[in-house]
């Protein structure tokens, strides 16, 4: 369960969680597409739940695990509707340019 790193002992689960959080933070900011950002946000939240579990707060971890898919499903439905709306507005303005002015 513990790995010897020059002097101190470090467990595996906080190490993986901290790696996930740092990588997810950089990935959410640098990607520009919506679905890539939501996938990276999922990656970041997995790291957060692992870090909460490594503090032995199991009730908070269970609450986060229940609440996180709700937030992700709302974001996905919203991004899909936003994409569809923007696409239909672009098609409408390209077909009838006089009505937009």
């Amino acid at each position: 369960m513990k790995v010897e790193v020059d002097g101190g002992t470090v467990e595996i689960l906080p190490l993986v969680s901290i790696f996930c959080i740092v990588m997810g933070c950089i990935g959410v900011i640098l990607n520009t597409d919506y679905l890539d950002k939501i996938i990276m946000l999922e990656f970041l939240t997995g790291g957060l739940i692992g870090l909460i579990v490594s503090f032995y707060y199991l009730d908070v971890a269970i609450l986060t695990s229940i609440m996180e898919p709700v937030s992700t499903v709302i974001l996905l439905l919203g991004s899909l509707k936003y994409l569809y709306l923007k696409r239909s507005k672009k098609r409408y303005s390209s077909k009838l340019p006089i009505l937009v002015k």
């Binding site: 679905l35 939501i38 996938i39 999922e42 997995g46 739940i49 971890a61 269970i62 695990s65 229940i66 996180e68 898919p69 992700t72 499903v73 996905l76």
Partner: peptide
């Protein structure tokens, strides 16, 4: 188990 169910549901939605 709760984390497994939640993450699988979310991945299916994506």
């Amino acid at each position: 188990a709760v984390y497994f169910i939640g993450s699988t549901l979310s991945s299916n939605a994506i």
